[in-house]
């Protein structure tokens, strides 16, 4: 690990003032410290924001505001979250292990980086780590990587479960930074790789996430399901956060589908959603919607299984919600 300076901020404003190029904010450190050990991240300076007074979960009118420094475990077990946003609690609990969740923060969870094997190995090329060096995953190991929204430069996936649920819940990410405060609606925080795979999010240098605000829960039934070959402590091969609201007439009044493990960002399956809203809530319709979404898929030889997997998962999940 490259030697670095460390300082602890007392307020978000102070943290932003401390920012300078080469600085990184430190939350729980469950990802950043690993990356520093691997030499993937080499900050000159860490500003510890894990103990900022941003560690509360509050009800604000009909919304819920989750502080950026709230630990994943505290979020998942919060009675209000469990009652009003069970999908979110479920998503958080499927992530990592108990020990990691006890330390990891909400903002850190959103900003964790891809686990692509090449990204994590500084002796191999990676466009995300070293722009222009190439993407060996495309010809090599991409078994767990993206089938949607990838580019010639990068086929990495975003690993967060929580972010997938937040994308379905249309949470707002509150940010402060050198350019002032702003609100980024999910899933807009994360971006597709395009020509700049080194940029995971739309955040600007020095931006600091202060909170995640949850709008009132959507109407209808919700669920989060994660697929993985190991029953625990594994990143998703594919995951889904879904909301389905079916009227008494059997017509889909509302539908949101967010997918994890398939793209560089939590993927809102908008084509599928649009295909379903106003139509019948039948298995056939679910299948057509899933296929409409997956027409855009660009699988590679070793991750082609994710296409039928995602299709099956969308259909099965919606069927479960409809019944």
């Amino acid at each position: 690990m490259k030697p670095f300076d460390y300082t602890r901020a007392d307020s978000a404003a102070q943290a932003v003032r401390e920012y300078a190029p080469g600085t990184m904010y430190l939350g729980g450190g469950t990802n950043l410290v690993d990356l520093m050990r691997l030499g993937v991240a080499e900050p000159e300076r860490l500003v510890d924001v894990s103990r900022l007074p941003l560690d509360t979960i509050e009800s604000v009118r009909d919304r819920v505001r989750v502080g950026a420094a709230v630990r994943n475990t505290d979020l998942a077990v919060d009675p209000m979250i469990r009652a009003r946003y069970p999908m979110l609690a479920r998503a958080v609990l499927t992530g990592a292990s108990g020990q990691v969740r006890n330390v990891a923060t909400v903002a850190g969870n959103l900003l964790q980086r891809t686990r692509c094997a090449y990204f994590q190995d500084v002796t191999r090329p990676c466009n995300k780590r070293r722009p222009g060096s190439g993407c060996p995953a495309i010809a090599g190991d991409h078994t767990n990587l993206a089938i949607l929204g990838s580019s010639e430069a990068c086929v990495a996936t975003h690993p967060s479960d929580m972010a997938v649920a937040l994308a379905a819940l249309e949470a707002e990410v509150h940010v402060t930074g050198p350019g002032g405060d702003r609100i980024i609606p999910m899933p807009g925080l994360h971006r597709l790789p395009g020509e700049e795979p080194e940029r995971d999010t739309v955040l600007e240098p020095g931006d600091l996430i202060t909170a995640v605000e949850l709008p009132p829960p959507p109407a209808g039934a919700t669920v989060y399901r994660k697929v993985r070959e190991r029953a625990s402590f594994a990143f998703a091969l594919v995951s889904i956060a879904a909301v389905l609201d079916v009227g008494d007439d059997g017509v889909v009044a509302g539908c949101r589908i967010a997918l994890g493990g398939v793209a560089h960002a939590p993927w809102r399956a908008e084509r599928a959603e649009q295909a379903l809203i106003g139509g019948p809530a039948t298995g056939e319709a679910f299948l057509r919607a899933a296929e409409a979404e997956l027409e855009q898929a660009r699988p590679l030889p070793r991750n082609a299984y994710k296409v039928p997997l995602t299709r099956n998962l969308i259909v099965s999940t919606l069927e479960g919600l409809a019944s």
């Binding site: 094997a117 190995d121 090599g140 190991d141 625990s232 594994a234």
Partner: peptide, 25 residues
């Protein structure tokens, strides 16, 4: 463990990628 055809050596060289059973399994 995957063998890296392009560069040689192995890929998935940690316990986050090389999965061994967890208690839940």
């Amino acid at each position: 463990t995957l063998t890296d055809e392009e560069f040689g050596g192995f890929l998935r060289r940690d316990l986050a990628q090389y999965h061994v059973p967890a208690c839940a399994d």
